[in-house]
Write a protein that binds this DNA or RNA. Sequence first.
RNA 1: GCGCCCUUAGCUCAGUUGGAUAGAGCAACGGUUUUCUAAACCGUGGGUCGGAGGUUCGAAUCCUUCAGGGCGCGCCA
Length: 576
Amino acid sequence: MNIFEIYRINIINLLKNLKNKNILLLPDNLNSINVDIPPVKYDGDISSNVAMVLAKPNKKTPENIAKLIVAELKNEKNIENISIVKPGFINIKFKNIFWSDFLIEVINNHKTYGIDLKQVKKNYLLEFVSANPTGPLHVGHCRGAILGDVLANLLLFNNNKVKKEYYVNDFGGQISHFTKSIFYRIREILFKEEFPKNDKDIYPGDYLIDIAKNIIKNNKDLKFDNYQNIYEKLTQLSVKESLKLIKLNLKNLGIEHDNFASERDIVLNKEVESVVKKLEKNNFVYIGKIKAPKVEDDTKWIEREQLLFKSTDFGDDKDRALQKADNTWTYFAGDVAYHENKLNRKFDILINILGADHAGYIKRITSAVEALSGKKNKLICKVSQLVKLIKDGKPFKMSKRKGDYITVEDLINEVGKDATRFIMLNRSSDVEIDFDFAKVKDKSKENPLYYVQYCYARISSVFRNTNKILEDDIETKNFKHNYSNEEIKLIKKISEWPKCVEVSSNMLEPHRIPTYLYELASDFHSYWNMGRNDKTKRFIDEKNEISLDKLILLKSIAIVVKSGMNILGVETPNKM
RNA sequence: GCGCCCUUAGCUCAGUUGGAUAGAGCAACGGUUUUCUAAACCGUGGGUCGGAGGUUCGAAUCCUUCAGGGCGCGCCA
């Protein structure tokens, strides 16, 4: 029930008719013909640019084209008024009955209202978070985690298939340092040996002590005397403990992955060897040298022959190393194998959510996926920009070494899951955001979360006060179709919801949803307050009853708010 | 040096594939509660969409270029 899409299709069908009668010529691509919301001052409900688009191929003025179309449309039963404005915009104003009929559609299809029906359904693999399993998540991981989760919700809402995956980097140098740190902590606890906290390869955080204690407690038969002998086992246990912490953090953020893919498994299964062979066969790898990176001190750089992937064939700045000097695989090689693994699982689209600090990695991994699949745009990478923390009015700089950082746990305890999610989602992922603790905790209209929730709570209270249940189905038989202009303004806003979903989903930009919900809530609050001076605008009358028309209006707003908040993964309390 | 992101009102930001006289919130000032939840509402002011070119019927949006801010550049992950 996307009225913009319905009228776009109406207009296009009408154009095809005119074409068949040899009245109009149509361009091959009709995508630039759109139906939109006109600016308020034009007193129209929807508008189209169709006349401008067709002017050139037909060698006519937009006004003349518009006249042809208006002549066809003006007798349509829903249309109250249709006009042509300046360059050639066609503005349509609907009869009131159109809007009340529309509300019935919303009520009758409340489970599916907003779903983008014309979107081709796809099978997605969405990889996000994938933070190193060396400790709990901190605030820096939050934004990408929430973005990924909500993208999944959005794609699922549109009836796509989505698998949410976490790539566990449980192999390589970082993990050995981590395992070693755990080993020293265990030695510290069991044998009172001093922990080498000044070693720069050692993780300093106190959470390692808890992990060490857990490992000791649950593995009484293990001996911690020889690091080499216990290394494999201890790595497994340490990663497992870390993942436990991470999963708990994610759960508290309202996030649950479907699968955790292990880098270690991929390497030990020799998947790297086989993907390198595949690339070799297709001539995408060679032995060569790469130059020292610009930033590094050039004197430290030892140029050598090594195995490289030809990412420059796909637009990267330089070719990328697959093997280190000690002949072990680079992180990139493992990730290429992981992406081949994803491709073999037959998804239509792969999506990766990355932090801003990994944006430079996108070119090489998309190159690899293109080389392996032969297709462009099989892998889409979304970057979530930095979150600047503001505490007590001042920027808060995190420093892991000083132990001076905010974990997800701290964040949830202080501001809560819903506020965190809503604020992180409220802005485009392309821009840095300020996350001001004071503002996120604030319970007033300054906080958009509460502003939207309050709208739902007010609707709930009307149902409660008239002894009705918001969740119950509504019998629409005695509908009067009697709405004021102010109410129609609200209905129009409700009608924009499918458009919001469509654009958010096509662009993979969920921030449009909180923006839209805020506008809807704003229109609602505004209408609510009119009831102060004008009793006809109150929902509940003197007899403590509510008209069916008003009930349907409220129910429709609640349907959309609930639906939107579900996608965001945020609660809609009935009372506040 | 190179790559990516950003630059829109005093501040924080919306603004799908190019569309009409560019929109919110905050801050400022002035109002609204015997009344369905004031976690709310109404009103007033506020703009060279970073600068300069270009593309076209039409540019905040696309291209070129310059300037400013952020992130990155590995045989780390």
